[in-house]
Design a binder for these strands. Structure first.
Lengths: 230, 230
DNA sequence: TGATCATATTAGTCTAGTCTAATGTCGATT
DNA sequence: AATCGACATTAGACTAGACTAATATGATCA
């Protein structure tokens, strides 16, 4: 039961795969590569290693899924990240929009002990500064309900989790627009009378205008509701 | 002035070389290898890279010295380490004998910004929990002239400043004995032929007998020399 | 002076992780 | 059913950093 120490790279891959595998689906090589900003063959290579380690299941040319061991490791990283973000904002004066990169580096270096001390100092919190649920130390995470881009409040921060169509033309279009699972967007505007929604892609710093029909296909996790923002 | 990002390994080598080259001497391949628990040829290889990077000067078969750039980088790591140790003990309930390994990992992952926030939260401290001076953000470090308990004159008044080991067993023992940084002691006796030293703890009014090996780890600031006493 | 021995260095191998270029696979379109 | 294009994989090279085995250096002592 002694979990072997994972490298930083491995931890990052597991987190990415977790984010990309919306309920029972496969995370593809291409999407993992996109999320981690790596070349596709690098991902193929790592996928081989991860599946030999028993952290993922790989179906060639289809994609990968986390095993229970991989999922446990991914949730542990997510707990670390979110506890760190909350600690840094509450105790060290970070803002919710600049904690991410600090936590991203620290999550690979902290011990379980330190994370539990931080969590205790925070009163065993359930949500991070972005409103995302914090997995428990035992690896349980609150299931969050999804909202479509077409219905999300203006001002909300969303993380795209699931695309509700199999139509290749639409899927291709979403991919071209950078609207792929894992991406974080802010809802900046919506035209009245069921009009289009404008979202801002946090990573690329660009905006997209999404009509109602397509917006209803983009199911997102609500990271921060409009009302909660400072 | 944009310092390139250094790898964890490089940072560890620089710290080790700093520790081994007090007062202008050379740090040898063997000693670096010993301190970092690496094989000597690994050190030879890294020495070559470090000197190409301009971080050290290498005199073949003699050893290495830090350049000013290398020294600056080393002091930055030492500042990080000591601020982290102090923060973890003051704010997260760590003991002075178990912070070391946590700080050792974190020091490579924290940003300058985070360290300065921690330092500010601590009131810009000058000493870490072991009594070691913390370099300033600009890279200055207090030069202290220290004497070990094993070598101090009988009759001297000392203030314990640094404990020259990271070994948890020894650190714990010292803590049990009340021999922790900041404590003031008087040297009341020493047995001949490198025998043990007897010190009197001014605060608790008790005596301790310290063998030569451990006494050489207890570095003290000389408060009052024997000759100066009334 | 020269032999000996500790230490340093070179030579060569290994692993993890990255990359580019070349090749396979598979589903969609004709 | 054939083809085309997107995606995945393999092949092969590179880097940092470690290792072991072999060799070089230089200090010490007879």
């Amino acid at each position: 039961m002694a979990e072997p120490a994972l490298t930083r790279s491995v931890e990052d891959y597991l987190k990415a795969i977790f984010r990309l595998s919306h309920q029972g689906g496969f995370a593809t090589t291409r999407d993992i590569a996109g999320l981690l900003a790596l070349a596709a063959p690098s991902v193929s290579g790592m996928v081989k290693r991860l599946s030999e380690m028993g952290l993922i299941e790989h179906v060639p040319y289809r994609g990968v899924q986390l095993t229970s061991q991989g999922r446990r490791a991914a949730l542990k990283m997510i707990r670390r990240h979110r506890v760190l973000e909350l600690y840094l904002t509450r105790h060290l004066g970070y803002d919710w929009d600049n904690v991410h990169s600090e936590a991203e580096r620290l999550e690979h270096a902290v011990s379980d002990d330190l994370i539990e001390r931080m969590a205790a100092a925070l009163g065993d919190p359930r949500y991070d500064p972005h409103g995302d649920p914090i997995p428990t130390a035992t690896g349980d995470i609150e299931e969050t309900e999804l909202v479509s881009v077409a219905d999300a409040e203006v001002g909300a921060e969303l993380e795209l989790r699931q695309v509700g169509t199999q139509d290749p033309a639409r899927l291709r279009y979403f991919a071209e627009q950078g609207l792929v699972p894992g991406v974080r967007v802010s809802v900046t505007d919506r035209q009245p009378f069921n009009g289009p929604t404008t979202v801002y892609l946090n990573a690329s710093g660009t905006a997209r205008i999404v009509g109602r029909e397509l917006g209803q296909l983009l199911w997102c996790h609500l990271a921060v509701a409009a009302a909660e923002r400072g």
